[in-house]
Design a protein around this nucleic acid. Sequence first.
RNA 1: GCCGACAUAGCUCAGUUGGCUAGAGCAGCUGAUUUGUAAUCAGCAGGCCCGGGGUUCAAAUCCUCGUGUCGGCACCA
Length: 602
Amino acid sequence: MSAIAIKYNDEIVDLVTAEERGIEGEAIELDNSAESLDVLRHSTAHLMAQAIKSLYPDAEFYVGPTVKEGFYYDFKTASEVGEGDLKKIEKQMLVFAKKKYKIEKYEISMEEAKEKFKDDHLKLAVMERIPSDTVSIYKQGEFEDLCRGPHLPSVGLIRYFKLTKVSGAYLGGDSKNEMLTRIYGIAFATKEALKAHMDMMREAEKRDHRKLGNEMKLFTFREEVGAGFAIWLPAGGRLRSRLESLLFKAHRKRGYEPVRGPEMLRSDLWKTSGHYQNYGENMYFTNIDELEFGVKPMNCVGHIKVYEDELHSYRDLPLKYFEYGVVHRHEMTGALHGLFRVREFTQDDAHIFCTVDQIEEQIIDVVEFVDKIMTTFGFEYKMMISTKPEKAVGDAEVWEKSEAALVAAMEAHNLAYTIDEGGGAFYGPKIDIKILDAIGREWQCGTIQLDNNLPARFELEYNGEENEKIQPVMIHRAILGSFERFIGILTEHYAGEFPMFIAPTQVAIVPVAESHKEYAKLLSDKLIDINADSEIYAKNDSLNKRIRTAEKTRVPMIVVLGDEEIENKTVAIRDRRTREQYTLSEEEFLQLIQTKVNEVNF
RNA sequence: GCCGACAUAGCUCAGUUGGCUAGAGCAGCUGAUUUGUAAUCAGCAGGCCCGGGGUUCAAAUCCUCGUGUCGGCACCA
């Protein structure tokens, strides 16, 4: 196989450019390596543009880069382009690919380029962003495109690709600009790799929490209820309450006190907090007796009122209040997505009121809490510090001090972190915890936010050693983020096969015949006593059918009870994953379940 | 919010260029069967075809305005 490009000092250079510059390097062949695919996909994007141009002659083109999941090209045409048009474009791409056009390259001055593309206002927009005096043009057949490469030597090498989705995208990623059409695609060097990729996509689809949530009867959404409002079904309710009670204990052990604020509070408070000004367009408001109330979009104000309920001494601090706080946020329709983005959700929210000196140890405590939970579920995670955003309250000095405190805590404990400039909350900087799930996807869940602004706005204070008034620091933190989102993530992480300690049902009991139902009920009661939920499959169906039905619920363990078991006081266990069967005495079985249900503590 | 696609039974889906009483499988109900590790058999019932308005002799099908869902973009205190 011959080279498609070369690697020169870590730079991927295509063959025409290498010749032009008279350089040599390690050959990159057409295979499924990251470097090779990058070149292949970039050229496939160009081939797609060529096909689009021939089908829609008025098309103008913006940019067509490669991305993690393949490539895309942004363009504009007066015609409507829908999913149904992808086949047509693919077909045209194959026609051009078969012609094996050589991909040629030449350089022209910026001036010439602007003249050349004078009818394409998108290309002109691209050129505005290029500082150089000359640009390179890549040419295949009649089609020419402004591009810096690298590209394949010929379009004939492009064979295994698929256009995956069509969507809109704002020019330059800014919603104030016009919207272009974007088509995404994927390409590989081999047929097998393309097929493997498509198979993997289908596998990921099977894990989709919306699909599993429906199949497993965890939750539902209904048009008449309203977009973004989840309805929790019994199975989901059981799962959720297991999570809640585990987490409740974990908070109590760490010195958090349960509190609860009201669902809505007078708007004056949201004006004091700054939410009215900064976030009002996303809040729900209502007027009662000429007073305006805002439904809470977060729980801090309630917890501030708890703090204000009595005078505090420095000896009381830190004070840690927690609440499974239900919040409402009017998310934009296009943002809603299953349990991941909803308009009503419950945060595992807590606020720590402490002295400046306590910040570091408090943050480290929270980080350790997070670590305990994430490793229990088998998530890897990383942390990111987000700094002052454009929309912010409070003066610059306070912000600087808060940001420095977060960095100091991370540094002092040798914790790895990255920085997201301008990603903070409007009242303070934060540490976000991003978790990696079973199939390598990244999710943002936990967050630790340092806040000097709300304590100032609400004039919070405590008495110091000299009986002086001192303003406490407030730390907002959530670990799961929200139960909705976290359960969605867990569902996909485990592909619905929840471990015993969190599964909606721990055991499915299948009595062989009518006469064994009584023993099944007795066993079920004993399971409740050890905090395990079970379901008895005693319907008038064949044994095979009932085992099948139970299997499909993804219950971790199925036990079959018949004459033999009743006689010997045993249970016949069927393991979900291995489908292996083994027998345990009733006592051993209950012991096993008890261990498995209680083996996890956060 | 923006671009595009879609909405038929509890669920998954058929339903031809507008034309007979809108179909199937699963789930549900009734009966027979009482089962030893992934679907026993038979029968029955189940629909404002997402909602409003329109075009037409005739609308699940075409147009329009909503609502909701999906894929992205933008957004995510």
